[in-house]
Design a protein around this nucleic acid. Structure first.
Lengths: 352, 352
DNA sequence: ATGAAAGCGCTAACAC
DNA sequence: GTGTTAGCGCTTTCAT
């Protein structure tokens, strides 16, 4: 037996006013403005009654009336990847404050799935989308923009498309992590990356390459390209690299780092004694930071908040000129102290 | 410039019928029934027009009218944990087929957050909830049940509460993984578990204990209890265990296994040469299976589908007697072949 | 077999 | 300052 939900009508009756007033007060309240055009006392009374009756606005009615669903869609590569999961949670929290509901979806780097998700979200009537484009989805993304659906790109970009985005300065991140390895005295540094044509990955590679060149080790620079559905090959790459006396690896993503470390350990090698590593992002299951010389800590929080803010702005001025903003976040490079990398085990015990 | 959305009215006009008829046809179509009480040809025509106009029903209107949101809430411990992420995706896919939208939330094992999520979801007007209870949330869960909100418990249960649930036979899983280690000749087997009072964890422990006793190694049985916010201690445990010549570990969860393996490797030990391990679930970042003697593969797919089916049933018969179903899934124990565990590295190369 | 019509709860334009 | 009212798109009962 479900207790009937409280409506503005109930409040109106109880407070002895019209439903319009109630509606008006409820909405102004939401804005936190103190400038009711309503009698202060009346407003106060309405608010009190609403509180007393535990009024919860009916979302469906609001949506039906206003045409705004207050729901946005977030499409990432893989919601179970720590990096995206963290961003997703951050967007969710931030959205909650702005009274938005968030729907999530993963593409698994498959443009077909992306297209399908966009379709599904559109049918659910989202007010806007935050999307991490995957390879081969450029046309689909362009289509969204063309349909004038508020859109913000995250983490990666689509060439020649005027749309808001939030990305990392990946070139710089690639450069500086490489440099950290060089500073620690390594010279035979190779990069393990994806064979996908994603903007962020390519920029990381370029950062690595430039840094190697800048330190006159350009001829040592090697980038191994893996297909993201063919991780097994990483083991082969590492064993082969070992024979060539490669000293350090820069991994282009957290997933690659996890796979790489796993392979290194399976072969009985130690980090950083046998291989030094640098990488991007965190990875909850594998505590890379105890072993990495340097890693890029991406400003997750800002990725989430900036993207959402841009999207909300874009939703609110749907018909306006449609300026688009590109936000480039600065990577934070976290380096382990020289001794620390070797001593991590001891420390862990001491502090426990 | 947003193109006006197509409504049943448009279809009615275009097809020369009333909106009531359109509505009727659209809904019967959804059921896949062929028994329209409508003239077959008329129905056909309406369907065609709807198709032609690319009609998409307005969810808000439907919800407002019917009181059903066709949205459910799923509350897990941590959506970025592989196990839960997989189940979540599975629920999502399955729900999509039934025209349900799914909202997700994570408790981080914090009952306060759980309570808050329930409140948020309730206000959004979900039709029902699938919940992974966390420690200390028993009363909150009971409250949901008391309010007659359709509810299904997942992975863990609440004592003395009559509510539907889908869980693993954890005792059996604990027993059989332990037995796999014993079969492989290990005798000094210890378990690393959480200090939380969760039904599933406790049953896994009991399975381990019983198995050890059944093989007359009850006095060897040791269960280390970790607080889930104090992982650093796992390193100490493992080092200390090493001194006591412990040969194998059974990890109670995938997170523990990840942390444990990470610690083992950091200390330069190898698996399974120095420590053999058995564990629960998968963990995408760290490919445990190449190293584990045995692991429990939980039937993710069934967790998701069974839970959703139970929930939908419960939603549809909200006022009915309210029978509750308890589904206990059988664990699948995956064992590596004896040689395989040692040879994994070689194999990976061969197949690459 | 088909249509008319009454709302679901809310917002916003307009009236007083 | 406050009230009236017309729908938003859909489902569903009751006529016809």
């Amino acid at each position: 037996m479900r207790t009937k939900r409280v409506t503005i009508k109930d409040i109106a009756t109880e407070a002895g006013v019209s439903i319009a007033l109630v509606s008006f007060v409820m909405n102004n309240k939401a804005d936190g403005k103190e400038t009711y055009r309503v009698n202060k006392e009346t407003a106060q009374r309405i608010l009190e009654v609403a509180q007393k009756l535990n009024y919860q606005p009916n979302n469906a009615a609001r949506t039906l009336r206003s045409g705004k669903t207050n729901t946005i869609g977030v499409i990432v590569s893989d919601i179970s990847n720590k990096f995206f999961a963290d961003i997703a949670r951050c967007i969710e929290n931030h959205a909650y404050k702005h009274k938005y509901t968030v729907l999530f979806g993963s593409t698994d780097e498959n443009p077909q799935k992306l297209e399908n998700l966009v379709e599904v979200f559109r049918n659910k009537g989202i007010d806007g989308l935050i999307v991490v484009p995957c390879e081969g989805a450029d046309e689909i993304i362009r289509d969204i923009a063309r349909q004038n659906i508020p859109l913000v790109l995250l983490d990666r970009e689509v060439p020649d498309l005027e749309v808001s985005s939030v990305v990392l300065n990946n070139r710089r991140a690639g450069y500086e992590t490489t440099e950290a390895l060089i500073r620690r005295g390594f010279t035979r540094i190779e990069m393990i990356s994806y064979s996908m044509g994603l903007s962020n990955i390519r920029e990381r590679e370029e950062g690595y390459r430039r840094c190697m060149q800048a330190h006159e080790m350009g001829e040592n620079a090697v980038i191994h390209h893996l297909r993201h559905d063919k991780f097994a090959k990483i083991e082969e790459i590492i064993r082969e690299a070992r024979q060539r006396r490669v000293e350090a690896f820069l991994f282009a993503t957290n997933t690659l780092a996890g796979q790489g470390l796993s392979a290194i350990f399976r072969n009985g090698w130690r980090v950083p004694q046998d291989f030094a590593i640098a990488c991007f992002d965190t990875n909850e299951a594998f505590d890379i930071y105890k072993t990495a010389i340097a890693y890029v800590r991406q400003p997750i929080e800002r990725f989430g908040t900036e993207a959402l803010d841009l999207l909300i702005k874009s939703i609110e001025q749907r018909d306006k000129p449609g300026s688009c903003t590109r936000i480039v976040l600065t990577p934070e490079i976290v380096e382990s102290a020289p001794e620390e990398a070797l001593r991590s085990a001891e420390e862990a015990v001491t502090e426990a």
